[in-house]
Design a protein around this nucleic acid. Sequence first.
DNA 1: TATTGTTATACTCTATAACTATA
DNA 2: TATAGTTATAGAGTATAACAATA
Lengths: 180, 180
Amino acid sequence: MNKKTIATSPGPPTDDRLTYGTAQPPESNSLDHGILHEFIGMYLRRAYEVAYEDFRARLGKDALQPGYFTILTLIVRNPRISQTQIGTASARDKSSVTKALRWMEDEDLIVRLRSAHDRRIHLSVATEKGIKQQALMEAKALGHLHSLNDAIGPERYATFISTLKDLIDSMETIAATRAD
Amino acid sequence: MNKKTIATSPGPPTDDRLTYGTAQPPESNSLDHGILHEFIGMYLRRAYEVAYEDFRARLGKDALQPGYFTILTLIVRNPRISQTQIGTASARDKSSVTKALRWMEDEDLIVRLRSAHDRRIHLSVATEKGIKQQALMEAKALGHLHSLNDAIGPERYATFISTLKDLIDSMETIAATRAD
DNA sequence: TATTGTTATACTCTATAACTATA
DNA sequence: TATAGTTATAGAGTATAACAATA
């Protein structure tokens, strides 16, 4: 091992920093996060993870996978929605939508029908079971949203959502520009 | 197929709603998103995805995977950080940390050393190459943060970050309560 | 030619569990 | 017994690409 390739921390090196073999790790409560403290992506990831986990925990075992809640809700609220529409509205590829819908069809949550106007199009409609399932999930989702609301606080709530929406729109626009 | 299991949309059913085979899908620009418009988790997921994609696009091919930026930054800023500390600071399991570090070691971005005080502990230190790589990524990250800043707006920036932090802390606390 | 949806496949990121070695 | 790290494996969630049917 070539000692010259070993970097010291930013700032003036000290003898201590070179005695790695015997040195101890830095104190956990005083770690330097550098730019990470400003790194919104990290907070977005973590926020998504913990929110997702809270929702999943509230759904318990009698519910669908959390990701499917969006799709089932779209179908319940928009009978005869097409798979392409579901994909666009949920920002997922059509192949992912197919997989989800097949699962929901096997579970008797939805039925799929061919449009007579354009036989390429598959229309999704929720069954009574699907409607009930969605309502059950939505009720649990409300509890989840309530806890998020408590965390955020009512004054910040509206601004927070609109900021997230603006961030999404802006990044999508930039991404579309890049795709040229 | 049993027509009785087919559900109509919320509200009074109409004949039209039952003619699924011939009916057309709803207009895409007027889809009813129901509770999804309030569903913060969906926005968090999407915001994370688009932010992540922007960062990845800016890194280009000469950079690490975006998730590794956090780890490499922690190592550069905190020489001799242990793997457990990295896991805690990045909210990842130690097995995921091991995989990332092994890759970085193979790439000569870091070296790992045994602590003489406690030979179970592996200390990570960035190499000169690792320092340069992190600096390169950080420069690109700044461009990414700048575009996020433009999207969010300077007035909302501080509030947005602190709201995300509060959301994370609050959900982590609830999760810890649940784990009892 | 373009669009809708399907299928097979594979990728990314991550965690679980069993393990070794150290304490 | 408890902790740090490793390894093998698996899982969730998703996308890519080739395809068939239809327009």
